[in-house]
């Protein structure tokens, strides 16, 4: 059914700042010189009225239309992935952090594939990307990231005016922080995210790097997806992966130490993970453990995406 009422047509890809005050709607019938307030002013009302009367004469003929004429909308166009040429590698960007919080001043673009997921709740408000040189945490600030930034998807970060910061030896990229104890904070706002984090082509999940000996556990692998092969659980602080919050009791991180050779890697799990209450392997058992390699000061850590990353031997 042909719609006969006035609706504005607007190109939603328009990003220029053309919206001023008021609820401007580009009127199809009356075009005001000033875009500042498209709502009824007496001039446009008179024009709208005359147009209305003329339209009414035409519409009178349409009196006997069928009763069901629901509005239909075409589906939006398919997502067009971005395609940029990165100017720096992730390792180069991380190296730019100079002793303290460092604002990126140049037009730097990095690219990497998403290797973490917050679907199971173990990651919160940030995600990791990695390229051939390493991985970095992007403190984006939003939740439900798995719905939009898929594992294996290429993400570009336009880092200009973002802040590089280090926490416990791990360099991440985010915004300026207002809290003195963190070198950088979350990006948070939609417009800023639109400017800095751009989605590229989706792809298969990244294959984790297999670690069979402790010499492979190095700082250059921080932020990347790794599998500890045949690691031995030598210590744990609880029988489940973590402890959920309940009532007045707060959530507690589960800490399970796995050993490769003589090197300890602490698998740290949040109490807000959906699998927190699942039983952890028993002491001295062996498993292949897959997750993101991180570090806190001198301790290497691993953060699981899900329990699929734990394969008992």
């Amino acid at each position: 059914m042909k719609r006969i009422y006035n609706t504005p047509t607007y190109n939603f890809n328009q990003t220029k700042r053309v919206l001023g005050a008021g609820e401007p709607v580009a009127r199809v019938s009356a075009s005001n010189g000033s875009a500042s307030n498209g709502s009824a002013s007496n001039g446009s009302m008179a024009r709208g009225l005359v147009a209305g009367i003329i339209n009414m004469a035409i519409i009178s003929a349409l009196l006997l239309l069928p009763a069901s004429c629901a509005r239909t909308f075409d589906e939006p166009e398919a997502f067009v992935p971005a395609n940029f040429q990165p100017t720096h590698t992730i390792a180069q960007l991380k190296a730019m952090r100079a002793g303290g919080p460092t604002e990126v001043l140049d037009d730097i673009t990095i690219s990497g594939k998403v290797v973490s997921s917050d679907a199971e709740g173990n990651f919160y408000r940030s995600f990791f990307i990695q390229d051939e040189t390493g991985g970095i945490e992007i403190k984006i600030g939003k939740t439900n990231l798995q719905s939009y930034y898929k594992e294996g998807q290429t993400i570009y970060v336009k880092a200009r005016h973002l802040m590089l910061g280090s926490y416990g030896g791990m360099v991440s990229i985010g915004e300026r922080s207002l809290e003195p104890r963190y070198e950088n904070g979350f990006i948070d706002t939609d417009l800023r995210i639109k400017e800095t984090i751009i989605r590229g082509t989706a792809g298969p999940k990244v294959a984790p790097y297999e670690i069979t000996s402790q010499s492979q556990i190095t700082d250059s692998r921080l932020g990347t997806l790794v599998t500890l092969k045949n690691a031995k659980l030598t210590r744990r602080n609880m029988a489940t992966w973590a402890q959920k919050a309940s009532g007045n009791i707060e959530a507690v991180y589960g800490e399970h130490t796995f050993q490769i050779g003589t090197r300890n890697v602490l698998v740290r799990t949040s109490g807000y993970a959906k699998f927190a209450s699942e039983p952890a392997p028993s002491l001295n058992s062996y498993a292949d453990v897959t997750g993101i390699l991180t570090k806190y000061n001198t301790t290497y850590q691993l953060v699981l995406n899900s329990l699929d990353g734990v394969v008992l031997k």
């Binding site: 700042r17 939006p76 989706a202």
Partner: peptide, 25 residues
């Protein structure tokens, strides 16, 4: 936030594009 609201209809109103995007992925 203000800049986003004043420059982008998809921030100021529901972003159907993003909704379809998420569902398709």
């Amino acid at each position: 936030i203000r800049e986003g609201w004043l420059s982008d209809w998809n921030i100021r109103q529901i972003s159907w594009d993003k909704i379809y995007d998420v569902n398709r992925l």
